[in-house]
Simulated scan of single mutants.
Amino acid sequence: MKLLITGGGGFVGARLARTLLARGQLAGRTIDRLVLTDITPPPADLLADTRVEARTGTLLSQAPALQGEDFDGVFHLASAVSGECELDFELGLRSNLDSTRALLDALRARTAAGGPVPRLVFSSSVAVFGPDPAFAWPGIVADDTLPAPQTSYGTHKLMCEYLIADYTRKGFLDGRSARLMTVTVRPGRPNGAASGFFSGIIREPLAGIVSACPVDAGVSHPMSSPSQTVDGLIRVYEATREQLGGRLALNLPALNVRVADMLDALEEVAGSQVRALVRFERDERIAGIVANWPSGATAARAARLGLAPCRQFADIIREYIADCRAAPNAAQALKGIQ
């Protein structure tokens, strides 16, 4: 079995790759080859696995060459993130819409030439939802809530969902879209995502660094741990069309949590001195984006596939600490609790 992960050098992509390699199979088939594409190389441990092939460069530049390859499965994770798309409209179009169309057309061309019909999981986002003056805004969104994105990023994700559904209807591929909740806690340096502070207010204090929270403590948002996000992507891949039971886009499970609850959990796990490193410094640009995001989500269809959210946010923090302790930079990442 030959798989492709776009965005395979990123945090979620690399974690997905490690999980698949450790399992050794997907949907009952042995994984022989795993191709990882990204603008940066994947981590060294992945490169050391003989089943892994890394390709560095933009997906848009790599897509034409993919027409000559038979992929049994694809996880399409590559994209520009929310804050980047708001600041650079052209970047968002290239990285999200143009790249996805190029990938889908490469897969379509290979299918037309007699290659296998690949199964594709697209990492969509809860950002496809937003308030609409014509309808009452539920705040907590469900699988059947009408999408109404209020950011370029959310708009791109929704348009790609529709493209994938249509390519599937035409028989070019077997696609499905998993709407990811905000994944936290992400390690490393902050990225350009407007949601990045949800990780920053946990990650930085644990490292002994002051972190600014740009929104009020009462802001609520749907969250997911990295491990649950990866499990969700794999389960959506392995589900049959009959198990999906309808539209090809569905919410992954979420823990609906307020910023105040996150900080309470941080204090529970790491102590009051660590919590005190979070300072509230409102950023109107970030706060304005977040105000148009859901305050929570439900995932009834994912639940029918056997997926469930974390029980409490403290468990997500403990998962991050365990991951840090298994990594080479544990002392630095957890300096605040040494």
Rank of each mutant, 00 (worst) to 15 (best):
R119F: 01
R119M: 04
R119Q: 10
R119V: 03
L120I: 14
L120W: 02
L120G: 06
S123W: 01
S123H: 02
S123Q: 06
S125K: 05
A127C: 10
A127R: 00
G130L: 07
P131L: 08
P131V: 09
P133V: 08
A134W: 03
F135P: 00
P138F: 10
P138D: 13
V141H: 08
D144E: 15
D144L: 10
P147N: 13
P147V: 11
A148E: 10
P149M: 11
Q150R: 15
T151M: 10
T151Y: 09
T151P: 08
G154R: 01
K157W: 01
L158D: 00
E161I: 05
E161K: 03
L163F: 11
L163H: 06
I164V: 15
T168H: 01
K170T: 05
K170A: 14
F172H: 15
S177R: 02
A178H: 03
L180R: 00
L180P: 00
L180Q: 01
T182D: 11
T184P: 06
T184F: 06
P187Y: 04
G188A: 12
N191F: 08
G192E: 06
A193M: 09
A194H: 10
S195D: 13
F198I: 11
F198L: 15
S199E: 03
S199V: 03
S199R: 08
S199Y: 05
S199N: 12
S199M: 11
I201R: 08
P205Q: 09
G208W: 10
I209N: 12
S211P: 10
A212K: 15
P214D: 11
V215T: 13
D216M: 13
G218W: 11
V219I: 15
H221D: 01
P222S: 13
M223D: 00
S225R: 08
P226D: 02
P226I: 03
S227F: 06
S227E: 14
S227A: 15
Q228K: 15
Q228G: 11
T229D: 06
D231C: 06
I234N: 08
I234S: 07
I234K: 08
Y237N: 03
Y237P: 01
A239P: 02
A239I: 09
E242D: 14
Q243K: 09
R247S: 11
A249C: 02
A249M: 02
L252H: 02
P253Y: 04
P253Q: 04
P253G: 05
L255Y: 04
N256W: 03
